[in-house]
């Protein structure tokens, strides 16, 4: 047997435990990355093929559409990846496998475990966006208004957007029971994508004022418009301040709700 019970159990620092939790998730992510990317980016990329390549060449869509589409596609990939990266494993863990239990037994507060999941959601969202960007650009061809001059803003929007959607994922992952996960994605996530100003700029909705203000409840709008502000600043977009403020508020609300759900599900 492994010696006497150790009397010198040192309390590890929180940073050290978070490092171990992150390492576990990174190891698992690396193994599952191809499947993960296919699951979260195939749909946006297929959309690019049809609306960014086929339709413009058929003459149904003006080539300038690409400038509005590309930031939106990045936003969808980022948001979808972040929300799924957090919600799907959590639904499984709390629904039946309880595999997360060994992490809940770590000598660290439960909210740290939840926060680490959110951090992983951000990382996966950013990876998906980085993966989609060059492919989408390749499919669509040159985009005039596109600029890489505001890289800092792109990163800021990506991290904030990823955070907001990871926290949404935390909320969904703890609020939904496993049987309803498919339904949830069809009923909540799909409309969110189509009414999230990803495939058209928010300004374009000026023709439909009711719609223009109704979509403001949709978190994706702010990620998409934030990406427009960062990548195609010359074209009409929502003000960056509005975008950032909205994302912070959304993240705050879903962190509070998600954490409550997490603690409720984690405590038996």
């Amino acid at each position: 047997m492994t010696a006497e019970p150790s009397t010198l159990v040192q309390r590890p620092t929180t940073a050290r435990i978070v490092g171990a939790l992150l390492l576990r998730d990174l190891v698992v992510m690396r193994r599952e990355l191809p499947y993960f990317l296919i699951r979260t980016t195939l749909q946006p990329l297929l959309f690019v093929v049809v609306f960014g390549y086929l339709l413009p060449r058929m003459g149904f869509v003006r080539a300038a559409y690409g400038a509005a589409l590309l930031p939106g596609i990045l936003a969808v990939s980022l948001a979808l990846s972040s929300v799924q990266a957090v919600a799907l494993p959590m639904v499984q863990d709390f629904g039946w496998t309880r595999e997360i239990e060994d992490r809940l037994l770590a000598p660290v507060s439960m909210r740290v475990v939840a926060a680490e999941k959110v951090a992983m959601g951000v990382i996966q969202g950013v990876i998906a966006a980085l993966f989609v960007l060059p492919i989408a650009r390749l499919i669509m061809g040159p985009i005039e208004a596109l600029t890489g001059a505001h890289l800092g803003v792109v990163i800021l929007v990506a991290i904030l957007g990823g955070t907001a959607f990871s926290m949404l994922g935390l909320f969904m992952g703890t609020a939904i029971n496993p049987q309803q996960i498919g339904l949830m994605f069809s009923v909540v996530v799909a409309p969110m994508i189509f009414f999230g100003c990803a495939y058209y700029p928010w300004q374009g909705l000026s023709a439909l004022p009711v719609m223009k203000y109704a979509v403001l409840v949709n978190p994706l709008v702010y990620v998409a418009e934030g990406m427009r502000a960062a990548l195609t600043p010359a074209l009409p977009h929502m003000s960056l301040v509005t975008v950032l403020a909205a994302l912070v508020a959304i993240a705050g609300v879903f962190w509070a709700l998600g954490l409550r759900g997490f603690e409720r599900r984690a405590m038996g």
Binding site: Q10, R11, P12, T13, R16, I17, A20, L21, L23, R24, V27, V28, R31, E32, T97, E99, D102, R103, L105, A106, P107, V108
Partner: peptide
């Protein structure tokens, strides 16, 4: 057990969670 990890990793990571 953490089914995303193999048997040894289950132990190594659990130990890591305890620093």
């Amino acid at each position: 057990a953490d089914r995303s990890l193999n048997v040894r990793e289950n132990l190594l990571f659990h130990a890591a969670y305890f620093g």
